[in-house]
Simulated scan of single mutants.
Amino acid sequence: MSALLSDLGADLPLVAAPMAGGPSTPALVTAAARAGGLGFLAGGYRTAPALAEQIRTTRAAGVPFGVNLFVPNPVPISAAAYGSYVRAIRPEAERYGVTLPAHPLEDDDHWTDKIDLLVSDPVPWVSFTFGIPGPPVVKALRRAGSTVLQCVTSADEARRAAAAGVDVLVVQAPAAGGHSATLTPARPPRPVRLTDLIASVRRAVALPVVATGGITTAADVATALAAGAEAAMVGTALLRTHESGASAPHKAALVDPAFTATTVTRAFTGRPARALRNHFTDHYDPVAPLGYPALHHLTGPLRRAATAAGDTRLIHLWAGTGHRQAAAEPAADTFDRLAGRIPTCRDSPAG
């Protein structure tokens, strides 16, 4: 076990990934730590006060943890492209009586407020996705006592992160569920095995590596560690756990035989993200423009209505390629399985 996690009292090289939008709860983060690993709260899409409340709840459990933030890296969208997509998806929204935003909403996800929060009320680990924070932000967090991690998808991004002064790299392979961490969303990462990506990044920089993307079994964890990672970060494998805040339709879809494949789509948010193929990805990805966060805000009301109705045709069913391994069980059992303490055992779709 490397010092990377053991310094925080962890005895397993396993990290619960931050999954924004609901799945990452204080209960899941706490369970990850009590199972011997570490967990991340997902600061994305939350206001600073809402994130502060989650930090207080997790801190009260007496466990170490991290917080992940989205770095502003907007993908601008023209009014014409936005209007065209509004018209394309409006029939779906009308079925639920949902009014779509007429104009693009561009925001920075409360960036400054959340950085101020983490500098004034530090947590052990802070990680960043979508962009690389400037060196002053990195320095401020490190001075506050936080270890700073940066999610990267290539050796070039790793070099840029190292130049910004981060402590650790989270190396994300394309098999990961949810959003790609790519710094260039107009050019999604090409297919590459996680082990090859780890090797490429380690040749480029000397920083410690946490591996993520497609890790859902003990064999996957062992392979990532053998390739040079100091820990494995898992997300999809935890989505169906009791402590996960993922919606019931999302949890059920992960093991539903009706969903046969994942796909990388920008139809929901305007950034590339891996999800289960469904009606929405099949019909709207071909016409979806790039445009983040505008498309995230555009489809948000429709996605919420569809989730409330259990309509998996229209939900963003984020999932990595190993989603069939996700089990309905306590997160501690998932960690035990990933650590090789108990055999792999997938439950039934009704799970």
Results as ranks from 00 to 15, higher is better:
L4Q: 08
S6Y: 00
S6W: 08
L12T: 01
P13G: 04
L14Y: 02
L14S: 00
V15S: 04
V15A: 10
A17E: 10
P18W: 07
A20N: 12
G21P: 07
S24M: 11
P26S: 01
P26W: 07
A27P: 04
A33H: 02
A35F: 04
A35N: 12
G39L: 09
A42R: 02
G43Q: 02
G43K: 03
P49M: 12
L51E: 06
L51H: 01
E53H: 15
Q54W: 00
I55A: 09
T57S: 14
T58C: 11
R59V: 02
P72F: 15
N73E: 13
P74Y: 08
I77K: 06
A80G: 00
A81C: 09
Y82P: 10
Y82I: 03
G83Y: 03
S84A: 15
A88M: 05
P91A: 13
A93R: 03
A93V: 13
R95H: 05
Y96A: 10
P101D: 10
P104C: 04
E106N: 14
H110L: 04
W111S: 13
D113L: 02
L118A: 01
V123D: 01
F128I: 11
F128M: 11
F130N: 05
G131P: 07
P133W: 12
G134W: 01
G134A: 15
P136T: 13
V137P: 03
V138Q: 00
L141E: 04
A144C: 03
G145T: 09
T147F: 07
S154E: 13
D156K: 05
E157H: 07
A158Y: 08
A158H: 08
R159Y: 12
A162Y: 02
A164W: 00
A164L: 07
V166F: 09
V170T: 06
V170K: 00
Q172K: 08
Q172G: 06
A176N: 12
G177S: 07
S180G: 06
S180N: 04
S180Y: 12
A181L: 00
T184W: 01
V192E: 06
R193G: 13
L194M: 09
D196R: 00
I198M: 00
V205C: 08
P208G: 00
V210I: 15
V210Y: 04
A211K: 02
G213C: 02
G214Y: 07
I215F: 14
I215S: 08
T217D: 14
T217Q: 09
A218K: 11
D220E: 11
A231N: 04
L238F: 13
L238E: 10
T241A: 05
K251T: 10
A252C: 03
A253Q: 12
D256E: 13
P257S: 15
R266N: 10
F268N: 00
A273N: 08
N278D: 12
N278F: 07
F280T: 06
T281A: 02
H283P: 03
V287W: 09
V287I: 12
G291P: 03
Y292M: 11
Y292L: 09
P293C: 15
P301C: 03
L302K: 06
A305V: 09
A308M: 10
A308E: 14
G310Y: 11
W318L: 01
T321V: 14
R324Q: 14
A326W: 01
E329I: 05
E329Q: 15
D336Q: 15
D336M: 11
L338W: 12
A339T: 11
R341F: 08
P343H: 14
S348P: 03
G351I: 00
